[in-house]
Amino acid sequence: MSVLPDRPSDGHPGPGSPTLELRGVNKSFGAVQVLHDVHLTVYPGQVTALVGDNGAGKSTLIKAIAGIHPVDSGEVVFEGRRVHLHGPRDAARLGIEVVYQDLALADNLDVVQNMFLGRERKRGVVLDEASMEQAARDTLTKLSVRTLKSVRQLVSSLSGGQRQTVAIAKAVLWESKLVILDEPTAALGVAQTRQVLDLVRRLADTGHAVIFISHNMVDVFEVADRVAALYLGRIAADVPVDQVDRAQVVELITAGRSGDLGIEPTVAEAGV
């Protein structure tokens, strides 16, 4: 990974300057171009909802940010510096953590063990259980997670919402700056969705930049500060959530355009 100094795009860096900026990012798999000239800005302390229909390129976009699929062209700017992500470890080193939809928790391990999986703290060769348990508990407390009975509970005994909570807390444990949540409320009940949305909000309130992928407009409008809509691999809009309503976002997702917002019709058709 190389880090090059970058000319600030809009004035001075400081509080309020974006955590992550994508500028003209393109990505193809063979002959299929999945991402076209994608511009996206993600701010600290804000939840940016990333919406789009199936196949719009959401997964490819987050995998590009996570370093799993390096971009073909365009710039990725992290905290004001241009970065090249060649693998998940590059992204993790910068403080980018992804919580995947299928969670990646080991059922047979407890909450602490899962949160530290692959990055265990040791004293010599011996695992430092006390320090890991303390840190896990501190993180969960900081996120005001009150639904867990014990941090030494096996993950297999947790409910869907609790599992999601653990997965998110795991991402936060690593001084992460940008947390990407891939459909965290899919397949959750009403009460559990509530818990997870509260947690997403607190994640932003504790200063993290959050990308929140969801198909559920209710959740998006409940928790997001900004909405970025992907349509056929292009960003149709990247706007504060109070400047759009639910119908407009649905239109952006399905047609790529809504009123003055969205992709120019000619471009949109060319993309089909």
């Binding site: 928790l105 059922d107 047979n108 063990q113 692959g118 040791k122």
Partner: peptide, 24 residues
Amino acid sequence: GRTGYGRHVYAVGGNAEAARRAGI
């Protein structure tokens, strides 16, 4: 029970994909 290696054995047995993503 007490080393990182052992922990990783359990993790791979419980969810190999999760272990792989955790860098094991």
